[in-house]
Write a protein that binds this DNA or RNA. Structure first.
Length: 413
RNA sequence: GUGGGUGUAGCUCAGUUUGGUUAGAGCGCCAGGUUGUGGCCCUGGAGGCCGUGGGUUCAAGUCCCAUUACCCACCCCA
């Protein structure tokens, strides 16, 4: 039991998994670049107020999951629990929306929520966040979903399914909400305790309750689609036909709801198997009112966040690609060889070669074993004989061919 | 915040039901043998306050209580 360990919900990404992380991050940057997005890196800490106003008071995130602290100046600051709020803040603060065309931004990095850890859920987790600002049209929605789908399918994820819904807008959602609350209130005592609480706090959430009995009750409930205004209906229809045009396999789900308050209209989620309860790998939607909510101009937005940990879990089931080792392993066979070997290693590295070594002399057998373990292509052996001759014995570890090369001429290697 | 499961060697885990001498295996590590100088094989070795603290008992890895960490699920959310 080590005296010190990483704190709960915070995990080391060990060298063995880091290559997979790089793969995912590189793919993300690649796809996002092809879709004409540029990177914005907001700070990891923002004023608490920013998240209070954007995410919504009623969610658990703001109520009990934020890492909030008072800095030495007495300001309340918070580790970002999600990326969108910071992106919007930066957009407004630097007038990034004033370019004549839509602003297309992405962000890749850690987020923080004080939650109970479980499969695919940590307190520090990582998201790819992609946003389009200033484009209110349905094609922006469709493009964002296509981007997400392209990213995930090029990663080779199994069993992808896109689920979509439209949450309506400020002109039609309130009446839906009212009607839903009225319907559910009449059945209040048949709902699970969680849903009785939701009824007051976040009634839309009852729609996707996991309890079977609640699902039964919800069956006859009013649906979003019956309440969409004409504009919302047309918008959603256009999104769907654009996706259909490309042959993207999506499914409509009346009961798909978002956790954060700022979402409007198009909302979507991508799921994949083998994640236990945390089946959503990415989710997002439109948030046309958020900018103004935060005191900025009236700029529409649409975007998504993808949970990288979950992608990594799904991908780690796949066969790993073989990683390459260093070009050389320098085997030091006697104490006298230490100095010359140290110099040789540095000269080789300056030449651009990757070189591994252990700074302790050892037997030939043991050093060759280490060279093998390091997955080096060649071993450079330096012992008494080699020192006397001013040369090193260089062995190709796969063909077993050996040559002698001068110790002081790195260009020969 | 709620529920369930699990903590034994660097790693993966036996052993706990039915308490009983020095707590095991595989992998890894170290040394040696063999192989043309490593990989395969063989021999030997190091390495554990059995998560922590109490309790029961002649005797606790094993039974009881507490505590802590991790895992899974709920909640919430990507």
């Amino acid at each position: 039991m080590p005296a010190l360990s990483a704190i709960r919900g915070f995990k080391d990404i060990l060298p063995g998994e880091a290559s997979l992380w790089r793969l995912v991050e590189e793919k993300a940057r690649d796809v996002v670049g092809r879709f004409d997005f540029v990177e914005l890196r907001p700070p990891v800490i923002e004023r608490t107020e920013l998240f209070r106003r954007s995410i919504g008071q009623s969610t658990d995130i703001v109520e009990k999951e934020m890492y909030t602290l008072e800095d030495r100046g007495g300001d309340l600051i918070t580790l970002r629990p999600e990326a969108t709020a910071g992106m919007v803040r930066a957009l407004i603060e630097h007038n990034l929306h004033e370019g004549g065309r839509a602003t297309r931004l992405f962000c890749l990095g850690p987020m923080f929520r004080y939650e109970r850890p479980q499969k695919g859920r940590l307190r520090q987790f990582h998201q790819l966040d992609v946003e389009i600002f200033s484009d209110p049209g349905p094609l922006a929605d469709a493009e964002i979903i296509v981007l997400l789908y392209t990213f995930l399918s090029e990663l080779g994820l199994p069993d992808l399914s896109i689920v979509m819904n439209s949450l309506g807008c400020p002109s039609c959602r309130p009446s839906f909400r009212e009607s839903l609350v009225a319907f559910l209130s009449a059945r209040r005592d048949r709902l699970c305790p969680d849903c009785q609480r939701r009824l007051a706090q976040n009634p839309l959430r009852i729609l996707d309750c996991k309890s079977e009995s609640c699902q039964e009750e919800v069956k006859g409930a009013p649906t979003f689609s019956a309440f969409w205004c004409c504009a919302c209906q047309d918008h959603f229809q256009a999104v769907r036909s654009a996706l259909g045009e490309l042959g993207l396999p999506f499914r409509l789900d009346d009961k798909l709801v978002r956790g954060l308050d700022y979402y409007t209209r198009t909302t979507f989620e991508v799921r994949s198997g083998d994640l236990g309860a945390q089946s959503a790998v990415a989710g997002g939607g439109r948030y046309d009112g958020l900018c103004r909510e935060l005191g900025g101009p009236d700029i529409p937005g649409i975007g998504f966040a993808a949970g990288l940990e979950r992608l990594i879990i799904l991908l780690s089931g796949q066969p790993p690609r073989p990683k390459g080792g260093p070009d050389y392993y320098v085997a030091i066979l006697c104490p006298e060889a230490l100095g010359p070997a140290f110099g040789l290693v540095q000269r080789l590295r300056l030449r651009g070669l990757s070189v591994a070594a252990d700074w302790e002399p050892g037997g030939l057998k043991s050093r060759l074993k280490r060279a093998d373990k390091a997955m080096a292509a060649k071993a450079v052996m330096i012992g008494p004989d080699e020192l006397a001759a001013g040369q090193a014995t260089v062995r190709d570890l796969s063909s077993k061919e050996q040559t002698r090369l001068p110790l002081d001429d790195p260009a020969a290697y």
